[in-house]
């Protein structure tokens, strides 16, 4: 039970605990880095370097009035914010961190993640609908449309990886990159996946469902206190999951680059996985700091007119090459 294998209790506890902790700490990390990138300092008052800012925020969030608008659909209003963190934690479960580390190995791991990401859109949709507020409704409509669209390209973009690895199991995909990362053959797939991933987790610059300049705060306008907190945490978990998927699918997962392996495979794997995931987390923050938000019609037309052809061509070319190589 306490042995170190996939699915052990210890494993589950550590993975989920660490996943949550990292997600929560991302709030502080993101704010500090956003600060640096805009020539500010960011939160640096609570504790050394401000790392306890998260605790202060959490306390604030917990003690805020947890207000349910009288005009809302109460059951759905309460349900909606729960969906996001739960499904995102479920998605986290199939991520292979290192040899022997992970909550479970599913032979349809990749599809599972897609299923969970698909469910996450209900959080946005129901939250906006239940609020019974026109801005919330607009936000949730945007969110739903955007997620449905980008899920298509996201799915197609990684089919190249699946073809090359010949498996949906994430551990197999990582294993098959032992000799070369898929980012090289699947460069366009990687690009499309990154963009679609940002849109999918509606992180900046694709945060149109809550673009505060137009629709107040979109689908979570009416939310306050810990219900809003759940939306926020869910979003950060989604960001972590996305940052973990990047190395798994395109950057060789726990495999060290240039043979820089050290110690046991476990330690080396965890180290390199963390380095790669951390790089992508910072990359996401940089994107938020640097890029401007497109208009909604630009987002949609970009998706359907650029991303879709690009990912389809990528898929066809990959397929053709694989078929050609197979003779």
């Amino acid at each position: 039970m306490f042995s170190f294998e996939v699915g052990s209790l210890l494993n589950i506890a550590v993975v989920l605990g660490a996943g949550l902790a990292v997600s929560v700490m991302m709030i502080w990390v993101e704010r500090r880095f956003l600060g640096f990138w805009s020539d500010r300092l960011g939160p640096n008052r609570v504790g050394p370097f401000g790392i306890f800012q998260v605790i202060a925020d959490a306390i604030k969030m917990l003690f805020k009035e947890d207000w349910i608008p009288p005009f809302s659909d109460k059951f759905t209003f309460v349900l909606a914010p729960m969906i996001l963190p739960i499904v995102m934690l479920m998605a986290l479960a199939v991520i292979p961190f290192a040899p022997g580390v992970g909550v479970m190995d599913l032979n349809i791991g990749l599809l599972w993640i897609f299923a969970m990401a698909g469910l996450a859109s209900y959080s946005t949709m129901l939250g906006g609908l239940a609020s019974n507020n026109k801005f919330s409704l607009l936000g949730s409509l945007r969110g739903t449309g955007q997620m449905i669209s980008y899920e298509v390209f996201m799915g197609i973009s990684i089919l190249g990886v699946v073809i090359l690895a010949d498996s949906f199991t994430l551990r197999d995909i990582v294993e098959s990159q032992r000799d070369g990362w898929y980012v090289v053959p699947q460069f366009f797939g990687f690009i499309v996946f990154t963009v679609a991933g940002l849109a999918e987790s509606h992180r900046w610059p694709f945060d149109l469902p809550e673009s505060e300049a137009e629709i107040i705060s979109g689908y979570n306008t009416e939310y306050s206190g810990m219900k809003f907190g759940l939306f926020m945490i869910g979003e950060y978990i989604a960001m972590v999951v996305m940052a973990l998927l990047m190395p798994v699918l395109f950057f060789g997962g726990w495999h060290a680059p240039f043979g820089l392996e050290f110690g046991t495979p476990l330690i080396s794997g965890l180290f390199w996985m963390s380095v790669k995931a951390g790089f992508f987390l910072l990359f996401f923050i940089l994107v938020r700091a640097a890029l401007v938000r497109p208009r909604y019609d630009q987002l949609m037309s970009y998706g359907w007119l650029v991303m879709l052809p690009l990912s389809l061509i990528n898929l066809l070319v990959t397929g053709a090459i694989v078929l050609y190589q197979a003779g």
């Binding site: 880095f33 600060g35 640096f36 990138w37 805009s38 020539d39 500010r40 300092l41 940089l286 994107v287 700091a289 640097a290 890029l291 650029v306």
Partner: peptide, 27 residues
């Protein structure tokens, strides 16, 4: 499209360089 994407990448790089600049914040 390439021009647009290149512009985004340049933006990302320039913003990234701000990591090494002194903050304007008065404490």
């Amino acid at each position: 499209q390439i021009k647009i994407i290149w512009s985004q990448i340049v933006t990302l790089w320039l913003v990234f360089l701000h990591l090494f600049k002194k903050a304007d914040t008065v404490e």
